[in-house]
Computed example of a mutant assay.
Amino acid sequence: MKVNGFLSEMQALKMEATNTSRPATGAQVSADFGAALQDAIQNVNGLQKTSSELSSRFDQGDRSVSLSDVMIARNKSSVAFEATVQVRNKLVEAYKELMNMPV
């Protein structure tokens, strides 16, 4: 999956969330967020697998795979992984902030 595609998907989810006419329950929001997060992680995993496969094929001498293809796939997976780590960091930070709130 392309990073631009991931960005447009996230923007579409944002628009969908802001345009709802009925209020969502906590369970619905949790399920939607969980599904979106799971899809994003699976996309990152897919990019990493693709990068690894292309790298292996290039190392084995497959002439249909160029060095530029390997480098592009590796950079895509790196950017996607870094974005996932940043999202995780923000979620942990938000969780810690919620836990430190007085009741």
Score class of each variant (00 low, 15 high):
2 K>D: 15
3 V>A: 07
4 N>A: 12
4 N>I: 11
4 N>L: 09
5 G>A: 08
5 G>L: 04
6 F>Q: 08
10 M>H: 05
10 M>I: 06
11 Q>I: 05
11 Q>T: 04
11 Q>V: 05
11 Q>R: 07
12 A>P: 02
12 A>R: 08
12 A>S: 13
14 K>S: 13
14 K>T: 03
15 M>L: 12
15 M>K: 15
16 E>H: 09
17 A>E: 10
19 N>P: 02
19 N>I: 00
19 N>C: 06
20 T>V: 15
21 S>P: 01
21 S>R: 10
22 R>N: 12
23 P>D: 06
24 A>L: 13
25 T>Y: 07
25 T>F: 11
25 T>S: 14
26 G>P: 01
27 A>C: 06
29 V>Q: 11
29 V>R: 06
29 V>S: 07
30 S>G: 05
32 D>Y: 10
32 D>G: 00
33 F>P: 00
33 F>R: 07
34 G>R: 08
36 A>E: 04
37 L>G: 09
37 L>D: 03
37 L>V: 02
38 Q>V: 02
39 D>R: 15
39 D>G: 08
39 D>L: 09
40 A>N: 07
40 A>K: 00
40 A>P: 00
42 Q>N: 14
42 Q>V: 07
42 Q>R: 13
43 N>P: 00
44 V>T: 07
44 V>A: 05
46 G>M: 09
46 G>N: 05
46 G>R: 08
46 G>Q: 10
46 G>S: 14
47 L>I: 03
47 L>F: 01
48 Q>N: 06
48 Q>L: 10
49 K>T: 12
49 K>L: 06
50 T>S: 07
50 T>L: 09
50 T>A: 02
51 S>Q: 01
52 S>F: 10
52 S>H: 11
52 S>K: 14
54 L>E: 01
56 S>D: 06
57 R>Y: 01
57 R>C: 00
57 R>A: 08
58 F>D: 00
59 D>C: 00
60 Q>R: 15
61 G>N: 02
62 D>W: 02
62 D>M: 02
62 D>N: 14
63 R>H: 04
64 S>R: 11
66 S>F: 07
66 S>E: 02
67 L>A: 15
67 L>R: 14
69 D>T: 05
69 D>F: 03
70 V>A: 03
70 V>C: 02
70 V>L: 01
71 M>V: 15
72 I>R: 12
73 A>H: 01
73 A>C: 08
74 R>L: 02
74 R>C: 00
75 N>K: 11
75 N>R: 11
76 K>C: 02
76 K>F: 10
76 K>P: 00
77 S>K: 03
78 S>M: 10
78 S>Q: 11
80 A>T: 02
80 A>I: 03
80 A>F: 01
81 F>R: 10
82 E>Y: 04
82 E>I: 04
82 E>V: 07
82 E>H: 14
82 E>D: 10
83 A>G: 11
83 A>N: 09
84 T>S: 15
88 R>N: 13
88 R>E: 05
89 N>G: 05
90 K>E: 11
91 L>Y: 01
91 L>G: 01
92 V>D: 04
93 E>Y: 15
93 E>V: 10
94 A>D: 13
94 A>N: 12
94 A>E: 14
95 Y>N: 10
96 K>L: 12
98 L>Q: 12
99 M>R: 14
100 N>G: 14
101 M>L: 15
102 P>V: 13
